[in-house]
Design a protein around this nucleic acid. Structure first.
Length: 94
DNA sequence: GTTGAGCGTT
């Protein structure tokens, strides 16, 4: 389950985000999006959890919660574009 | 040293 988290404080980093969600289940990865060039936080991030219901519970519990003085927004993330998947048109017509 | 809507680098 991929989780999108926004409205984060700029002081929050990956391990902070992970520690918040780890209370509700196993966090396989947690990442705060930082600018590649300046290295500063963009104020949002992504968390991946292995247990789907733990993830949805974490979303329900952490959405609107306060982290570092900011009310964070948590929701299910949109899937990152997968370019490795096999083509849907796997016919041999052409 | 700064700022505030959003969906990330493979």
């Amino acid at each position: 389950m991929n989780i999108y988290v926004s409205n984060l404080s700029f002081a929050i980093e990956d391990e902070d985000l992970k520690s918040y969600f780890a209370e509700y289940g196993e966090v396989t990865s947690a990442k705060v999006i930082t600018d590649k060039y300046t290295g500063r936080s963009k104020g949002f991030g992504f968390v991946e959890m292995s247990d789907d219901e733990a993830a949805q519970k974490a979303i329900a519990e952490l959405d609107g919660a306060t982290a570092d003085g900011r009310t964070i927004k948590v929701s299910v993330a949109k899937p990152r574009e997968e370019k490795r998947s096999k083509p849907a048109y796997s016919n041999n017509r052409w």
